[in-house]
Amino acid sequence: MRRVLFAVLGLAGLLIAGCSSAVTGVPVPAASPDDDRELVQDYFADLNEAGAEGPDTQRDFLRRSQHPDYADELCDLGRLTLTIDPAMSTLRVDPDWVPPDAGRNATHPRGLVYVLGVSVSIRDDGGALLGEQIGSQRVVVLDDKAYGFAPCPTDQ
């Protein structure tokens, strides 16, 4: 019986030794919504602050924060401003998303794409509320910076 026990323990030791291996390098955690949550929150806070200063300031913010792969695909909101209230609890990775109607750039943007629910208020340059809408918005984190895609008004 003792010989069988040593044989089983010896075999288990060989199996364990054969299944283990050292991995070189430094472990790096995979990105997650929690890692980039603050960048996404700051993106919307900056967008809303720019909108509070007026259409020209918000247009400049949208131009500067447009994803670099789509910098030439901006929409003009005219004299409208947006206030976007993000539902941060809905933030999640969206790895397969491609911007609709992206023209020649119809590929997945570089960076980590997130999607989240938002409530959007649209105001004219006098501050009058023209409409509200609930939907989804994408924000991409690339090189530790949050980028968006300037919204385009649609014809009614």
Rank of each mutant, 00 (worst) to 15 (best):
P109H: 03
V23Y: 09
S121V: 13
R3W: 11
T57D: 11
L142C: 04
A106W: 02
R3M: 13
A128M: 13
G54H: 04
H108R: 15
E49R: 12
I16E: 10
A71L: 10
E49M: 02
L5Y: 13
H108Y: 02
V141P: 03
G135W: 07
A31Q: 14
L14K: 06
D69I: 01
T107F: 14
E132D: 09
N48F: 06
P33Q: 05
D34G: 06
T107Q: 12
F61K: 02
A17H: 00
S121A: 15
E73V: 00
G54D: 01
D124L: 03
V28G: 06
D155T: 15
Q156E: 15
V40S: 01
G25N: 10
G18D: 05
G103Q: 02
L77F: 01
P95Q: 09
D46H: 05
T24S: 14
D56H: 07
I122R: 03
P153E: 08
S136E: 15
T57C: 04
A17W: 14
P99Y: 07
R3S: 15
A87Q: 15
A30G: 13
G135N: 09
P99R: 06
D60H: 12
D94A: 09
G117K: 12
S121G: 11
G131R: 10
S136V: 08
E38C: 01
L82P: 00
V93C: 00
D42M: 03
N105S: 11
V113S: 05
L47S: 05
N105Y: 06
V141L: 01
G126W: 04
A52D: 14
D46R: 06
P151T: 07
A52P: 00
V140L: 04
D35A: 14
D56E: 14
L74M: 05
D34A: 14
L82T: 01
P86G: 11
N48Y: 04
C152A: 10
I16C: 13
R79A: 14
S119P: 03
D35T: 12
M88R: 07
Q41W: 02
D85N: 09
L5M: 12
V115D: 07
D72V: 01
H108F: 04
R123H: 11
S136D: 14
D76K: 02
V28W: 08
P68Y: 05
L62R: 03
N105F: 07
H108A: 11
M88N: 05
T57H: 07
V118S: 08
D155P: 07
E73C: 03
G25E: 09
P29S: 10
G127Q: 08
D144Q: 13
G103H: 09
G127W: 08
G18P: 02
P68K: 05
D46P: 02
D35M: 13
L130K: 11
S20T: 15
D85G: 06
R37L: 04
V28Y: 10
F61I: 04
T83Y: 04
R92Q: 14
L116Y: 00
L82G: 04
V118H: 06
L116C: 01
G13S: 14
S21W: 10
G135L: 06
R79N: 14
A106L: 04
R63N: 09
C75K: 02
T107C: 01
S119T: 15
P33K: 06
Y43D: 01
G54L: 02
